[in-house]
Amino acid sequence: MLELRLVQGGLLKKVLESLKDLVNDANFDCSASGFSLQAMDSSHVALVALLLRSEGFEHYRCDRNLSLGMNLNNMAKMLKCAANDDIVTIKADDASDSVTFMFESPNQDKIADFEMKLMDIDSEHLGIPEAEFQAIVRMPSAEFARICKDLSTIGDTVVISVTKEGVKFSTRGDIGTANIVCRQNPSIDKPEEATIIEMEEPVSLTFALRYMNSFTKATPLANQVTISLSADLPVVVEYRVAEMGYIRFYLAPKIEE
């Protein structure tokens, strides 16, 4: 028996909106510690890891570990029927082939339940090693989204370079080139507008903008995004999900042939 009640149901809506274009089908893993997901995009180039800790739910009952195979597009369709301020409850029986999403309006005058069929999904679980990063950039998520969107009108790839001067995003295409530099800015008064760069050593890596743009669908979840970089290793683009967890996107850098 599984019953997870999330007062901030809007968070789950935002999580699904940020996943549904990248991943088609995935297993949500429910355990005593939380509600999580790990999945690759269909071309196995990008990986997403989601964690919503059990403490973040108003009520969290998970009698035994359960894996719920869901089509994320269909799950997003159902969650779109919830209002942003609705309380969302996810329910499933151990042997059931369906999951129920219950939506309650904040003043309890409207209660809806949507039942969705579960799927059997063969998914590989990958081990993500703990890594020391050469550079970690924390910046406003909307700024990062704007940069990725703007650069993708000019080129297909972005070179992210971190130096003591700041973080530089560069692209080149048929019509020309573009460079955007964001300098460190602690923004004491408005921490959500800060750009903080922790650098062990300079690093410069090239990534496909198509995937970066897909990751920025998570922008509504958090004011800040963290971009962790190391030479020849996948970048980690992380958005915090309120106080309850995170969504992390991993993308391998392009390699010159």
Partner: peptide, 14 residues
Amino acid sequence: GSKQPMITRFFGKV
């Protein structure tokens, strides 16, 4: 030209 490696090249199956 540049090549896009798969993520499985970096993270192994558990």
